[in-house]
Nucleic acid binder design. Structure first.
Lengths: 210, 210
DNA sequence: CAAAAAAATTGACGTTCCGTCACGAATCAG
DNA sequence: CTGATTCGTGACGGAACGTCAATTTTTTTG
C-alpha cells in the first residue's frame, strides 16, 4: 500500500526484480532470435538454436514464447510498431494525393534502408525460401492504409477505384522494390521512393516527361 | 540396340514398366502433396502427412524428393511451367507498351483465376504464415520479364527507367492483387487486370478519365 | 526478520518426425 | 532362364519439440 518509490523513477518501467528479469529475458530471447534468424534464415533455425544463443534453459524459452513462429511474429510486430506511427504521421500531414503517395513511400524506404538488421532477420532465407507472416500489427498497418485511401477518395483527392487493389498494389510495390533496393551495394531509398511515387502518380509513361 | 518399339507409341512417354511406375509414383506424390498443402498449409504439413496420403512406404518418398521443400518446389515449378509460355507468347505478340502491360496482367490473372487449386496449395496458410519459394522456373520467369522490359526500352517503346524496379513492381502488384482477387466470392480477373494495367499505364490519377 | 506463498527456472523425459539403410522384391538384359 | 540392376519397404538412430515435477528465487505475510 505504501506509495514510496525508493527514489527510482516514480512512474516508469518495472521496478520489482521479478519484472526486471522478465523483461530482460524477453529482450534477450528476441535479440538472440533476431541474430540467429539473420544468420541461418527462418526455415533453418530451430528453437534450440535460439535458446543456445541465450544463457537460458530450454524450458524458460517456453515461458515467453510458444514457438519459433511466435518469436518471429514478435520481431515483426516490433518492427511494424516502429514504422506505423511514422507512416501515419506522414499521411495525416499530406494535403494532396501527391504528398500522400510520395510521403508514404519515402518514409517506408527510408526506414527499410535504416533498420538493416531487422530487414535481414525477416527476409534472409535459406534455399530461396521466404516466409511472410501477417501479424496483427502488420495487418493493422494495412487496414490503416486502406482507410486513408478511402478517406482520400471521399475527400475527392483520389478518383474512385478499388481501394483493396490499390492498397495491395502499394504494399506489393513497396515490399518488392525494397528487396531489390537492399540487394544492391549501396541502397538508395530516395531512388526507390521516386520510382514508386512516379509509378503511382503517372504510370510508367509519365517518366518520359522528366 | 534393337529399334523395335513393341507396337506402342513409337516416341512418346516411358514404355518400360519401370519407367511407368516411376512416373506414376512421382505424380501420385505430387498430387497428394498438392492436396495436403491446400488442406493444412505448408507449415503445418509434415512429410509423413504427404506419405500417408499416398499408399507408398516412407522410404519411397525419399527416392523421389529430398524433403518437403523439394515437393513444394516441384509443385511451384510445374505451375510456373504452365504460365510462362503464355506470358512469353503474349509479350512477343505485343506491338506497343499498352499491349505489353495489359497482355501480361490479363494472362496472369486469368491463369490464377483458372488454376484455383494450385493457387490454394501454394498460398494457403496456417496461422497467417505464408511461404514463398523462388524456384528456378519462377526466377527464370522474372528474368524473362526483365529482359523484355529492357528490350522495350531499347526499342523506344518505354522510357528509360530502372528495369529491376519495374519488374519488381509488376511482380509485386500481380501477386498482391491476385491474392485480394482470390479472397473474393467470385474472382474477377478482368477487373484485376484492368486495375493493374491502368496503374502502370497512367497511375492512379488516370483512372479519373473513365 | 523469518517463514509461508507465489512465481519463475531448470533440465530430464516422452513424443513426434526426420532421413537412412540393409534387405527383399520386381524388372531388365543377355 | 539367370544374373544384374533398380526400386520399394519399414524398422531404426538421431534430432528437435514441448511438458512438467522438482528446485530456486522473489515477494508477501505475520
Amino acid at each position: 500500500m505504501s506509495v514510496e518509490t525508493k527514489g527510482e523513477s516514480p512512474i516508469a518501467a518495472p521496478c520489482g526484480k521479478r519484472e526486471q528479469t522478465k523483461l530482460a529475458n524477453r529482450t534477450a530471447i528476441l535479440e538472440a532470435a533476431r541474430s540467429v534468424f539473420a544468420e541461418l534464415g527462418y526455415g533453418a533455425t530451430t528453437v534450440r538454436d535460439i535458446i543456445r544463443a541465450t544463457d537460458l534453459a530450454s524450458g524458460t524459452f517456453y515461458n515467453y514464447f510458444k514457438s519459433k513462429e511466435e518469436v518471429f511474429q514478435a520481431i515483426q510486430d516490433e518492427t511494424a510498431l516502429r514504422v506505423r506511427p511514422r507512416l501515419r504521421a506522414e499521411r495525416i500531414r499530406a494535403r494532396s494525393i501527391e504528398d500522400f503517395i510520395s510521403g508514404t513511400f519515402r518514409t517506408f524506404f527510408d526506414y527499410v534502408a535504416t533498420d538493416h538488421d531487422s530487414f535481414r532477420a525477416i527476409r534472409r532465407n535459406t534455399d530461396s525460401i521466404r516466409v511472410r507472416m501477417d501479424t496483427p500489427e502488420i495487418i493493422a498497418g494495412f487496414d490503416e492504409l486502406r482507410e486513408d485511401i478511402v478517406k482520400a477518395m471521399k475527400a475527392g483527392l483520389l478518383p474512385h477505384i478499388d481501394a483493396d487493389f490499390l492498397m495491395a498494389s502499394m504494399v506489393g510495390v513497396a515490399f518488392e522494390v525494397a528487396e531489390i533496393m537492399m540487394k544492391r551495394e549501396t541502397p538508395d531509398p530516395k531512388a526507390a521512393a521516386e520510382f514508386a511515387t512516379r509509378l503511382f502518380l503517372g504510370g510508367i509513361g509519365a517518366v518520359k516527361k522528366v
